[in-house]
Amino acid sequence: MSDISSSSCRVYLVVASFCYAFFGWQHVLLGLGWLNQPWPHFAPPMAFLLTYILAVVLCLAVSAMAGWHLYMVAGGETSVETQDHEHYRKIAKQRGETFVNCYDLGWRKNLELFFNIGPNGYPTYTLLLPLRIEPYTDGRAWARRPGVEQHLGVRPGEELTDEDDEN
């Protein structure tokens, strides 16, 4: 649940910083002295300008980070798996095989499962509300492609991360 909560926080930070930047641009012109009007606020213009620059930078940086993470979720991968799967693709290609991620159910289904929305989850409008939504999984078992129990194109012993021993 922490992944979903942190993703929601990123999105809300992007929205808030975007609104601050979008609705504050006229105050930037005023703070820079480009308009022939006095500064009407108690805080000095430099304080506002520094805060404005911070909001713009945070909006861009967190948007890029959130976009990258949504891209990985749409592909059914985590940050670590992205590196592992690139290695698996190279090995499979050398053998003339194709690597297939068993957790990639298609971008739409992956996003629906991640946010727990769609036909088997909550309504889509819950994405717009700051609600805690229970994940579809217990964190140990994940949805896979029908009939595929492990990645295709990877042979036993070639995995970069070992399965936990269940004793």
Rank of each mutant, 00 (worst) to 15 (best):
P146L: 05
G33W: 05
P45V: 05
G139H: 09
V73N: 13
S7L: 09
C59Y: 10
L35G: 05
A66P: 01
Y136G: 06
P40D: 11
N116M: 02
E158A: 07
S79D: 09
L32Q: 08
C19N: 10
S5K: 11
P135W: 01
C59V: 02
I117W: 03
E97T: 00
A74L: 00
T78S: 15
R132D: 10
E158R: 08
H27V: 07
R89S: 06
Y125W: 14
M72N: 11
L49F: 00
E81M: 00
Q37K: 10
V154M: 12
H85S: 11
Q150L: 03
Y125A: 03
A21W: 03
F23D: 10
D162T: 11
L152G: 07
I133K: 05
P135E: 04
Y122S: 06
W107H: 10
W39H: 06
M46Y: 04
F115D: 02
E112P: 00
K109H: 00
A74N: 04
A43I: 13
P123S: 07
E97R: 12
N36G: 12
R108M: 14
H85A: 14
A61P: 02
T51C: 05
G118S: 05
A74G: 13
R155Q: 13
E149Y: 01
Q83G: 13
G33T: 09
S17F: 00
P123H: 04
P123F: 03
V73S: 08
F22K: 12
P146T: 04
H85D: 13
I133F: 01
M72W: 09
E159M: 11
Y125K: 04
V100K: 05
N120G: 04
G153T: 07
V80G: 00
A141F: 09
L70A: 15
K109A: 02
I91T: 08
L105C: 12
A43E: 12
F99W: 04
G24L: 08
A47I: 09
D104P: 06
L54D: 14
A66Y: 12
V148N: 07
L131W: 02
P135F: 01
A64L: 15
S5L: 12
D165M: 09
M46T: 14
K109P: 01
V100W: 01
S5A: 15
V57H: 04
G139Q: 00
Y122F: 05
V80F: 03
M65Y: 08
Y88F: 05
L60S: 13
D165A: 12
R145Q: 10
E134F: 02
L60V: 12
R95D: 07
A143Y: 03
P135L: 02
F42W: 09
P130L: 02
F42I: 13
R108E: 14
F48R: 08
A64N: 11
E97F: 03
S5C: 00
T98Q: 14
V28R: 04
S2V: 12
L29S: 15
P44C: 08
T98L: 00
L58D: 08
Y122E: 13
D3G: 04
S63Y: 05
E81P: 00
W25S: 10
I53T: 15
V57A: 15
Y52M: 06
P130S: 01
H87D: 12
